[in-house]
């Protein structure tokens, strides 16, 4: 009977360890998907900013002199390059987090191979090299310096792999702050994208629907179809709000994973939010292609 109980206990412990290893693997996968989604979204955000500026330039152009047009064009191109550069910084930060989570997943699965520990060290080194640049920025609802400056200790629980536990004690609080930064970045990016999308819809509305309605002698079915397309297009702004929470959910998932307090919903909210990001990026990509 005693041997039977010990066997049951062993099976149970092994199963728990295996489940924890799986959880880290799933999180690494989520981190990879999040990174892909963020990469796609920042690319589309850049294109959207250019599209919005293009339409605005064309609208302004009607009322400007040739000399003004030249000056304004050059100034705007320079300002857009600055904005695209800041989006590149976000992509760099996201890729580093992806590498970190992939290494964490591998460490959970394999014990403590030196090569994985070296990869984690390399990622942390790159993150701290990137930090001064990001600390100078102010993104979303808080300054980045404030966000990165107040790491709180994590309650690391239920981790049997020693090297993994050591790694999480060493760098877990820093990663939690970096995820908070991602959350602020994504929210600011979403606000910017929503503004640019709204601008594009309004300018198209004016040129293709409102002005023809006021000025054209006759209007046919294409006008009706365009009006419907544009009015329903405003509904797509909701998709931006949905995608904006993914980084916050990723941070929540990381804390629940490390502190072993995963809720009944499990990974579902995280994967749903990542899908929302990917859906938004895809929708914007298609819209951009049809311009």
């Amino acid at each position: 009977m005693r041997r039977y109980l010990i066997l049951l206990l062993l099976i149970s412990v092994t199963s728990c360890v295996s489940t924890r290893v799986n959880q880290f693997a799933v999180f690494a996968n989520a981190g990879r998907n999040y990174s892909k989604a963020m990469e796609a979204l920042t690319m589309e955000a850049g294109k959207l900013a250019i599209d919005a500026d293009n339409e605005l330039l064309l609208k302004e152009r009607e009322h400007l002199t040739a000399e003004e047009r030249g000056e304004i064009y050059l100034e705007r191109s320079e300002a857009l390059k600055g904005l695209l550069g800041s989006l590149q910084g976000i992509r760099q930060h996201t890729r580093l987090l992806e590498r970190y989570f992939a290494a964490l997943g591998a460490l959970a699965a394999s014990g403590s191979p030196a090569i994985i520990t070296a990869e984690l060290g390399s990622v942390m080194g790159s993150l701290s090299a990137l930090r001064p640049q990001l600390e100078k920025a102010s993104i979303g609802d808080a300054s980045v310096a404030d966000l990165l400056g107040s790491a709180t200790p994590l309650v690391i629980s239920g981790i049997k792999v020693q090297a993994l536990e050591q790694e999480l004690r060493r760098n877990g609080p820093v990663i939690e702050r970096e995820l908070e930064l991602q959350s602020a970045l994504l929210k600011a990016l979403s606000q910017q994208m929503a503004e640019d999308m709204e601008l594009l819809l309004d300018l198209k509305d004016f040129d293709a629907v409102t002005r023809p309605f006021v000025e054209a002698a006759t209007l046919g079915d294409p006008w009706k179809a365009k009006r419907k397309e544009l009015l329903t297009g405003f509904l797509s702004l909701d998709a931006v709000d949905k995608a904006a929470t993914a980084a916050e959910t990723l941070k929540k998932g990381f804390l629940e994973l490390v502190e072993k307090r995963m809720g009944p919903a499990g990974w579902t909210p995280l994967f749903e939010d990542i899908h929302a990001m990917l859906d938004l990026a895809e929708m914007l990509r298609k819209q951009s292609e049809t311009k």
């Binding site: 609208k59 152009r61 400007l64 304004i72 100034e75 705007r76 300002a79 102010s138």
Partner: peptide
Amino acid sequence: PEKQHESALLQHQVQMALLKMRAAEL
């Protein structure tokens, strides 16, 4: 036309300010 011109120049300045503030360091 002069008011439309003024509006276009103002819109340009607003867009410049927005792009620069979005990318600026605090």
